[in-house]
């Protein structure tokens, strides 16, 4: 019933500077990773290696957004796994459709 006392008077708590600093730090990391992608796009030769680097950096960024911005890491473990584990199916989909695409390529050209 502690919540009901809370209801009548909402007290404004002071800013937690450490928390806010962490948010800006995450923002800096995200922008830095994007900048690195840009630099690589114009300096490295196109090919599997470059694409692999891009995908890795993208997933790294996705991790920061989900863990720091969406606070998925702070949720209960079962919730965390119920969101992350189903994504395994996507690995299969990527492999299957890339196989399919390259087979179409071989048939067509």
């Amino acid at each position: 019933m502690a919540m009901q006392e809370n209801k009548s008077a909402l007290e404004v708590e002071p800013r937690d500077e450490a928390k806010i600093k962490k948010i800006w730090k995450t923002a800096g990391i995200l922008l830095l990773l994007t900048l690195v992608e840009f630099v690589f796009a114009f300096t490295l030769p196109r090919g599997i290696l470059l694409y692999a680097i891009f995908i890795a950096l993208t997933i790294w960024k996705a991790k920061y957004i989900m863990m720091e911005f969406m606070h998925l890491g702070d949720e209960a473990k079962p919730l965390f796994y119920s969101i992350i584990v189903p994504l395994i199916f996507l690995v299969w989909l990527v492999i299957a459709l890339m196989r399919e695409g390259s087979d179409i390529f071989l048939l067509r050209w």
Partner: peptide
């Protein structure tokens, strides 16, 4: 993911 993976799939089917 389905849309983006479709993009990848169609993309690798072209030179």
């Amino acid at each position: 993911a389905a849309l983006l993976i479709t993009y990848i799939s169609i993309r690798v089917s072209f030179p």
